[in-house]
Design a binder for these strands. Structure first.
Lengths: 131, 131
DNA sequence: CATTTACCTACTTATTCAATAGGTTTATTG
DNA sequence: CAATAAACCTATTGAATAAGTAGGTAAATG
Protein backbone atom coordinates (compact mmCIF):
# COMPACT_ATOMS: atom_id res chain seq x y z
CA UNK A 1 0.00 0.00 0.00
CA UNK A 2 1.39 3.34 -0.99
CA UNK A 3 0.71 5.80 1.81
CA UNK A 4 -0.43 9.38 1.69
CA UNK A 5 3.14 10.51 2.11
CA UNK A 6 4.24 9.12 -1.22
CA UNK A 7 1.06 10.09 -2.98
CA UNK A 8 1.09 13.63 -1.65
CA UNK A 9 4.77 13.97 -2.53
CA UNK A 10 3.96 13.09 -6.10
CA UNK A 11 1.18 15.63 -6.20
CA UNK A 12 3.47 18.31 -4.80
CA UNK A 13 6.03 17.56 -7.48
CA UNK A 14 3.39 17.72 -10.20
CA UNK A 15 2.07 20.96 -8.79
CA UNK A 16 5.54 22.50 -8.73
CA UNK A 17 6.12 21.38 -12.30
CA UNK A 18 2.82 22.80 -13.50
CA UNK A 19 3.23 26.14 -11.80
CA UNK A 20 6.90 26.67 -12.52
CA UNK A 21 7.46 30.24 -13.66
CA UNK A 22 11.09 30.75 -12.75
CA UNK A 23 10.32 31.88 -9.20
CA UNK A 24 9.76 30.10 -5.94
CA UNK A 25 6.33 28.67 -5.24
CA UNK A 26 5.05 29.03 -1.67
CA UNK A 27 3.85 25.82 -0.02
CA UNK A 28 0.71 27.66 1.02
CA UNK A 29 -0.37 27.85 -2.61
CA UNK A 30 0.38 24.20 -3.24
CA UNK A 31 -1.55 23.18 -0.14
CA UNK A 32 -4.58 25.21 -1.19
CA UNK A 33 -4.59 23.93 -4.74
CA UNK A 34 -4.12 20.34 -3.66
CA UNK A 35 -6.44 20.59 -0.69
CA UNK A 36 -3.87 19.10 1.66
CA UNK A 37 -2.98 20.43 5.12
CA UNK A 38 0.02 22.71 4.76
CA UNK A 39 1.37 21.49 8.07
CA UNK A 40 1.43 17.94 6.84
CA UNK A 41 2.97 18.93 3.55
CA UNK A 42 5.84 20.55 5.42
CA UNK A 43 6.93 17.13 6.62
CA UNK A 44 6.80 15.67 3.15
CA UNK A 45 8.53 18.59 1.52
CA UNK A 46 11.34 18.34 4.02
CA UNK A 47 12.11 14.85 2.71
CA UNK A 48 12.07 16.12 -0.84
CA UNK A 49 14.54 18.86 0.04
CA UNK A 50 16.79 16.48 1.91
CA UNK A 51 16.74 14.17 -1.10
CA UNK A 52 17.70 17.07 -3.39
CA UNK A 53 14.59 16.74 -5.50
CA UNK A 54 13.49 20.28 -4.77
CA UNK A 55 15.00 23.27 -3.05
CA UNK A 56 13.48 25.87 -0.80
CA UNK A 57 14.05 29.52 -0.10
CA UNK A 58 12.96 31.24 3.08
CA UNK A 59 11.48 34.65 3.55
CA UNK A 60 9.11 36.75 1.54
CA UNK A 61 8.99 35.68 -2.05
CA UNK A 62 10.29 32.30 -1.01
CA UNK A 63 8.91 28.85 -1.56
CA UNK A 64 10.03 25.75 -3.44
CA UNK A 65 11.20 24.87 -6.93
CA UNK A 66 12.18 21.68 -8.72
CA UNK A 67 15.91 21.12 -9.06
CA UNK A 68 15.62 19.48 -12.48
CA UNK A 69 13.33 19.36 -15.45
CA UNK A 70 10.20 17.22 -15.04
CA UNK A 71 11.40 14.57 -17.47
CA UNK A 72 14.50 14.06 -15.35
CA UNK A 73 12.53 12.72 -12.39
CA UNK A 74 11.20 9.20 -12.19
CA UNK A 75 8.11 8.49 -10.15
CA UNK A 76 10.11 5.70 -8.53
CA UNK A 77 12.68 7.95 -6.96
CA UNK A 78 9.99 10.25 -5.59
CA UNK A 79 8.10 7.38 -4.02
CA UNK A 80 11.16 5.57 -2.77
CA UNK A 81 12.43 8.71 -1.09
CA UNK A 82 9.21 9.56 0.70
CA UNK A 83 7.95 6.06 1.44
CA UNK A 84 11.35 4.98 2.70
CA UNK A 85 11.33 1.99 0.40
CA UNK A 86 9.40 0.52 -2.48
CA UNK A 87 9.88 -3.03 -1.24
CA UNK A 88 6.63 -4.93 -1.51
CA UNK A 89 7.55 -7.50 1.06
CA UNK A 90 9.58 -7.22 4.24
CA UNK A 91 11.83 -10.09 3.14
CA UNK A 92 13.23 -7.73 0.52
CA UNK A 93 13.43 -4.48 2.43
CA UNK A 94 16.82 -2.93 3.08
CA UNK A 95 17.10 -3.50 6.80
CA UNK A 96 15.91 -7.11 7.04
CA UNK A 97 18.55 -8.56 4.76
CA UNK A 98 18.64 -12.26 5.02
CA UNK A 99 15.71 -14.37 6.08
CA UNK A 100 17.21 -17.62 7.31
CA UNK A 101 14.75 -19.57 5.19
CA UNK A 102 15.68 -17.68 2.02
CA UNK A 103 17.37 -20.61 0.34
CA UNK A 104 14.49 -23.01 0.78
CA UNK A 105 11.69 -20.47 0.48
CA UNK A 106 9.25 -21.37 -2.24
CA UNK A 107 7.75 -17.92 -2.37
CA UNK A 108 10.85 -15.74 -2.46
CA UNK A 109 11.29 -15.93 -6.25
CA UNK A 110 7.72 -14.72 -6.61
CA UNK A 111 8.37 -11.69 -4.44
CA UNK A 112 11.58 -10.93 -6.28
CA UNK A 113 9.86 -11.08 -9.62
CA UNK A 114 7.05 -8.92 -8.33
CA UNK A 115 9.46 -6.47 -6.83
CA UNK A 116 11.33 -6.08 -10.07
CA UNK A 117 8.10 -5.49 -11.95
CA UNK A 118 7.04 -2.78 -9.53
CA UNK A 119 10.42 -1.14 -9.60
CA UNK A 120 10.57 -1.18 -13.39
CA UNK A 121 7.10 0.30 -13.56
CA UNK A 122 7.75 3.23 -11.25
CA UNK A 123 11.29 3.97 -12.38
CA UNK A 124 10.08 3.89 -15.97
CA UNK A 125 7.45 6.56 -15.36
CA UNK A 126 8.68 10.13 -15.55
CA UNK A 127 7.20 13.05 -13.70
CA UNK A 128 6.67 14.80 -17.03
CA UNK A 129 4.16 12.12 -18.01
CA UNK A 130 1.86 13.19 -15.20
CA UNK A 131 1.93 16.93 -15.76
CA UNK B 1 3.44 -4.08 1.38
CA UNK B 2 2.19 -7.61 1.55
CA UNK B 3 1.93 -8.61 5.19
CA UNK B 4 2.84 -11.84 6.92
CA UNK B 5 -0.77 -12.91 6.74
CA UNK B 6 -0.79 -13.11 2.98
CA UNK B 7 2.69 -14.51 2.76
CA UNK B 8 2.07 -17.17 5.38
CA UNK B 9 -1.23 -18.09 3.74
CA UNK B 10 0.60 -18.72 0.52
CA UNK B 11 3.15 -20.87 2.30
CA UNK B 12 0.40 -22.88 3.96
CA UNK B 13 -1.27 -23.48 0.61
CA UNK B 14 2.02 -24.59 -0.92
CA UNK B 15 2.71 -26.84 2.02
CA UNK B 16 -0.71 -28.44 1.76
CA UNK B 17 -0.21 -28.95 -1.97
CA UNK B 18 3.20 -30.52 -1.48
CA UNK B 19 2.15 -32.89 1.26
CA UNK B 20 -1.19 -33.90 -0.16
CA UNK B 21 -1.62 -37.65 0.19
CA UNK B 22 -5.37 -37.97 0.18
CA UNK B 23 -5.72 -37.46 3.93
CA UNK B 24 -5.99 -34.45 6.17
CA UNK B 25 -2.81 -32.63 7.12
CA UNK B 26 -2.60 -31.39 10.72
CA UNK B 27 -1.74 -27.73 11.14
CA UNK B 28 0.86 -28.73 13.68
CA UNK B 29 2.91 -30.35 10.92
CA UNK B 30 2.58 -27.36 8.64
CA UNK B 31 3.63 -25.03 11.43
CA UNK B 32 6.69 -27.10 12.23
CA UNK B 33 7.77 -27.40 8.62
CA UNK B 34 7.23 -23.73 7.93
CA UNK B 35 8.60 -22.57 11.27
CA UNK B 36 5.55 -20.42 11.93
CA UNK B 37 3.64 -20.28 15.21
CA UNK B 38 0.74 -22.69 15.02
CA UNK B 39 -1.42 -20.28 16.99
CA UNK B 40 -0.91 -17.56 14.42
CA UNK B 41 -1.52 -19.95 11.56
CA UNK B 42 -4.89 -20.82 13.06
CA UNK B 43 -6.07 -17.30 12.35
CA UNK B 44 -4.88 -17.42 8.77
CA UNK B 45 -6.25 -20.85 8.12
CA UNK B 46 -9.62 -19.77 9.39
CA UNK B 47 -9.79 -17.21 6.59
CA UNK B 48 -8.81 -19.82 4.06
CA UNK B 49 -11.58 -22.11 5.29
CA UNK B 50 -14.14 -19.33 5.26
CA UNK B 51 -13.10 -18.48 1.72
CA UNK B 52 -13.54 -22.13 0.69
CA UNK B 53 -9.95 -22.48 -0.40
CA UNK B 54 -9.30 -25.31 2.03
CA UNK B 55 -11.41 -27.42 4.33
CA UNK B 56 -10.76 -28.71 7.79
CA UNK B 57 -11.70 -31.78 9.75
CA UNK B 58 -11.71 -31.91 13.52
CA UNK B 59 -10.66 -34.69 15.79
CA UNK B 60 -7.89 -37.21 15.69
CA UNK B 61 -6.64 -37.78 12.17
CA UNK B 62 -8.01 -34.41 11.22
CA UNK B 63 -6.35 -31.42 9.66
CA UNK B 64 -6.70 -29.49 6.44
CA UNK B 65 -6.78 -30.21 2.73
CA UNK B 66 -7.04 -28.14 -0.43
CA UNK B 67 -10.49 -28.02 -2.00
CA UNK B 68 -9.16 -27.95 -5.57
CA UNK B 69 -6.12 -28.94 -7.55
CA UNK B 70 -3.10 -26.61 -7.21
CA UNK B 71 -3.42 -25.31 -10.77
CA UNK B 72 -6.95 -24.17 -10.00
CA UNK B 73 -5.82 -21.58 -7.46
CA UNK B 74 -4.39 -18.22 -8.40
CA UNK B 75 -1.96 -16.52 -6.07
CA UNK B 76 -4.15 -13.44 -6.40
CA UNK B 77 -7.20 -15.00 -4.82
CA UNK B 78 -5.15 -16.34 -1.93
CA UNK B 79 -3.61 -12.96 -1.24
CA UNK B 80 -6.79 -10.99 -1.76
CA UNK B 81 -8.65 -13.23 0.64
CA UNK B 82 -6.12 -13.05 3.44
CA UNK B 83 -4.93 -9.48 2.95
CA UNK B 84 -8.47 -8.21 2.62
CA UNK B 85 -7.62 -6.44 -0.60
CA UNK B 86 -4.86 -6.18 -3.15
CA UNK B 87 -5.44 -2.46 -3.67
CA UNK B 88 -2.13 -0.64 -3.77
CA UNK B 89 -3.60 2.71 -2.89
CA UNK B 90 -6.46 3.64 -0.60
CA UNK B 91 -8.13 5.65 -3.38
CA UNK B 92 -8.87 2.32 -5.06
CA UNK B 93 -9.82 0.17 -2.11
CA UNK B 94 -13.33 -1.18 -1.87
CA UNK B 95 -14.63 0.88 1.02
CA UNK B 96 -13.31 4.31 0.08
CA UNK B 97 -15.15 4.54 -3.22
CA UNK B 98 -15.04 8.01 -4.56
CA UNK B 99 -12.39 10.54 -3.71
CA UNK B 100 -13.95 13.93 -4.45
CA UNK B 101 -10.86 14.95 -6.42
CA UNK B 102 -10.99 11.85 -8.60
CA UNK B 103 -11.96 13.71 -11.76
CA UNK B 104 -9.16 16.24 -11.56
CA UNK B 105 -6.55 13.98 -9.98
CA UNK B 106 -3.39 13.79 -12.02
CA UNK B 107 -2.14 10.70 -10.26
CA UNK B 108 -5.23 8.50 -10.28
CA UNK B 109 -4.58 7.07 -13.77
CA UNK B 110 -1.14 6.04 -12.59
CA UNK B 111 -2.56 4.16 -9.62
CA UNK B 112 -5.16 2.51 -11.80
CA UNK B 113 -2.57 1.35 -14.26
CA UNK B 114 -0.38 0.09 -11.46
CA UNK B 115 -3.26 -1.65 -9.81
CA UNK B 116 -4.16 -3.46 -12.98
CA UNK B 117 -0.58 -4.59 -13.46
CA UNK B 118 -0.42 -5.97 -9.93
CA UNK B 119 -3.74 -7.70 -10.27
CA UNK B 120 -2.81 -9.27 -13.61
CA UNK B 121 0.45 -10.46 -12.16
CA UNK B 122 -0.99 -12.19 -9.13
CA UNK B 123 -4.09 -13.57 -10.77
CA UNK B 124 -1.92 -14.91 -13.58
CA UNK B 125 0.24 -16.91 -11.20
CA UNK B 126 -1.09 -20.30 -10.20
CA UNK B 127 -0.36 -22.07 -6.96
CA UNK B 128 0.97 -25.02 -8.97
CA UNK B 129 3.82 -22.83 -10.23
CA UNK B 130 5.16 -22.49 -6.71
CA UNK B 131 5.02 -26.12 -5.65
C1' DC C 1 10.91 46.75 11.05
C1' DA C 2 6.97 44.19 9.67
C1' DT C 3 5.67 40.55 6.95
C1' DT C 4 6.03 36.32 4.74
C1' DT C 5 8.02 32.43 4.07
C1' DA C 6 10.78 28.13 5.14
C1' DC C 7 12.43 25.26 8.75
C1' DC C 8 12.46 22.67 13.28
C1' DT C 9 11.05 19.66 17.36
C1' DA C 10 7.75 17.54 19.67
C1' DC C 11 3.26 15.52 20.47
C1' DT C 12 -1.15 12.97 19.55
C1' DT C 13 -4.56 9.80 18.20
C1' DA C 14 -6.19 6.02 15.85
C1' DT C 15 -5.30 2.03 13.45
C1' DT C 16 -3.06 -2.00 12.03
C1' DC C 17 0.28 -5.87 12.55
C1' DA C 18 1.78 -9.86 14.49
C1' DA C 19 1.10 -12.47 17.57
C1' DT C 20 -0.49 -14.95 22.50
C1' DA C 21 -3.52 -16.98 25.75
C1' DG C 22 -6.80 -20.00 27.11
C1' DG C 23 -10.52 -22.17 26.36
C1' DT C 24 -14.62 -25.50 23.78
C1' DT C 25 -16.08 -28.74 20.37
C1' DT C 26 -15.52 -32.65 17.39
C1' DA C 27 -13.88 -36.92 15.85
C1' DT C 28 -10.89 -41.10 16.26
C1' DT C 29 -9.00 -45.05 18.41
C1' DG C 30 -7.31 -48.25 21.91
C1' DC D 1 -16.30 -45.24 26.83
C1' DA D 2 -12.41 -42.61 27.90
C1' DA D 3 -8.18 -40.65 26.42
C1' DT D 4 -6.26 -38.16 22.83
C1' DA D 5 -5.56 -35.17 19.02
C1' DA D 6 -7.10 -32.29 16.27
C1' DA D 7 -9.97 -28.06 14.67
C1' DC D 8 -12.42 -24.13 16.16
C1' DC D 9 -13.57 -19.86 18.99
C1' DT D 10 -13.14 -15.30 21.58
C1' DA D 11 -10.42 -12.08 23.61
C1' DT D 12 -6.20 -9.59 24.69
C1' DT D 13 -1.67 -7.49 24.05
C1' DG D 14 2.29 -4.81 22.77
C1' DA D 15 4.65 -2.53 19.40
C1' DA D 16 4.88 -0.07 15.40
C1' DT D 17 3.17 2.94 11.87
C1' DA D 18 0.09 6.40 9.67
C1' DA D 19 -1.62 10.68 9.41
C1' DG D 20 -1.70 14.50 11.09
C1' DT D 21 -1.37 18.92 14.91
C1' DA D 22 0.81 22.41 17.63
C1' DG D 23 3.76 25.87 18.43
C1' DG D 24 7.55 27.76 17.74
C1' DT D 25 12.50 29.83 15.41
C1' DA D 26 15.27 31.52 11.46
C1' DA D 27 15.73 33.87 7.16
C1' DA D 28 14.73 36.93 3.45
C1' DT D 29 12.39 40.90 1.33
C1' DG D 30 9.96 45.32 0.66
Amino acid sequence: MISTKGRYALRVMIDLAEHADGGYIPLKDVAERQKISKKYLEIIVKDLVKGKLIKGSSGKGGGYVLCRKPDEYSVGEILELTEGSLASVSCLSDNSDGCPRARECKTLPLWCEFDKMVRDFFYGKKLSELV
